[in-house]
Amino acid sequence: MRKTSNRFIFSLFAFILVAGIAFAATPGYRSSPGTGDIMGQGKYQSDPHKIFRMVRYIPRTYSGAIALSADSIVIWDLTSDDGVTITTTSTSYDSAVAGIIVQNALTPDAVCCNSAADDRGKRNWTWLQTYGLSQVNVTPNTAVVSAGAALAASAVAGEAVPFIGGGTASTTQGMAGFFYDAAAAGADDVEVFLNID
């Protein structure tokens, strides 16, 4: 009786293992890992759900502005006030933190002052990740990052820093998630979990 029961349990176990793979249309480990692959993820069935937003990028200062690279942490632009425009910050723990861009963000065609509506179809649109497993570049101006440390924007454009408390200023309370891994100062592509949206 016990033997039969064990056989049944292991048959069920084997079936569910196979069925689980079968009903995922294109499991991440098999094909189309895409962004996950670029970010060093995407090859396992445990790839989690992620949320991305199509956003417009404008540089903090137009003079000498260059493209912002993928894996940069960014904030919502406080001048545009439109909920779709992002930029970089020079404020550590900026409360306006928006997420991490997963695709290079090109500078706008116009030198200044276009609205998001003006920029529709232009080159300065990119993808912002607001939730899920991601990766970020860490600023050199910090101590070693501990696994589990809270994630925030640093004073260096596009680079992250562990959040260690923004004092009493309400403008410096921005946490975007946490670091999954320990990392050295200045490390690139550090694994983090975003939890903004």
């Binding site: 793979i21 790839d47 991305f52």
Partner: peptide, 11 residues
């Protein structure tokens, strides 16, 4: 297997 999807939001 229920954890694969991405959500892409377009404004």
């Amino acid at each position: 297997p229920s954890c694969f999807s991405d959500q892409l939001s377009i404004p």
